[in-house]
Design a protein around this nucleic acid. Structure first.
Lengths: 101, 101
DNA sequence: TCAACATATGAATTGTTAATCATATATATT
DNA sequence: AATATATATGATTAACAATTCATATGTTGA
């Protein structure tokens, strides 16, 4: 069904866990375990989301012993900073939209 | 179930019709009919999307006789311009993400 | 005021995305 | 080599978002 880049982009960022992963990694790189604790999410679910973010190059990872440390890819830092501004601006209106709620 | 502003924001923009409406309105204001023609979409479906964009203040409208002319709200011009840049950058990677496709 | 046109709305259906569950892989430790 | 630990993967199920369909509203012109 060949989705558009626009659709893929907003769908990727439009999941709360994925977006929270990005904001957590803004602060510092983290292992899967550490992320799972912070998010209160099941390990396998988290792994699925991390794979998605990795495929999309929103994050990078390197192997450290048997753990994997995830970090934001450079371009993503700017992206997250920029979107935060808009979310703040539109936030109040968005919650009044019946179609989305 | 109280969704987050982040989720609402990306869901609002993550529908192809809604995003295309915004890019069409970047060029010039348009009536519902004109938009429906450009998009090849059913009128009632389009109206639902326009209501959403209106509720979220991505667009504004004014009544002109029995038609309604929609236009981008000022802040949205900047938003669309800014996101276009990121979509262009990540586009190539996004389509390789199995979870999204 | 009646017909037609332009747009909007609500409810039901269909389609898409995410979570779960079971299991696999890879590395380190004993 | 066997076990424990950390993470990944695939398939199924559950949750959510978008479309359709039927109908409503509001405005203009005959």
């Amino acid at each position: 069904m060949m989705k558009t880049p626009e659709k893929l982009f907003f769908t990727a960022l439009g999941n709360d866990y994925r977006y929270r992963i990005l904001t957590l990694l803004m602060k510092k790189p983290m292992s899967v375990n550490a992320l799972a604790e912070k998010l209160g999410i099941e390990q396998s679910n988290l792994s699925h989301h991390l794979k998605c973010l990795l495929d999309c190059r929103f994050v990078e990872a390197d192997v450290k012993g048997r753990t994997r440390i995830y970090r934001l890819s450079p371009a993503t830092k700017e992206l997250v900073g920029s979107t935060k501004k808009y979310i703040n601006y539109y936030g109040g209106y968005l919650k009044k939209c019946g179609m989305l709620s």
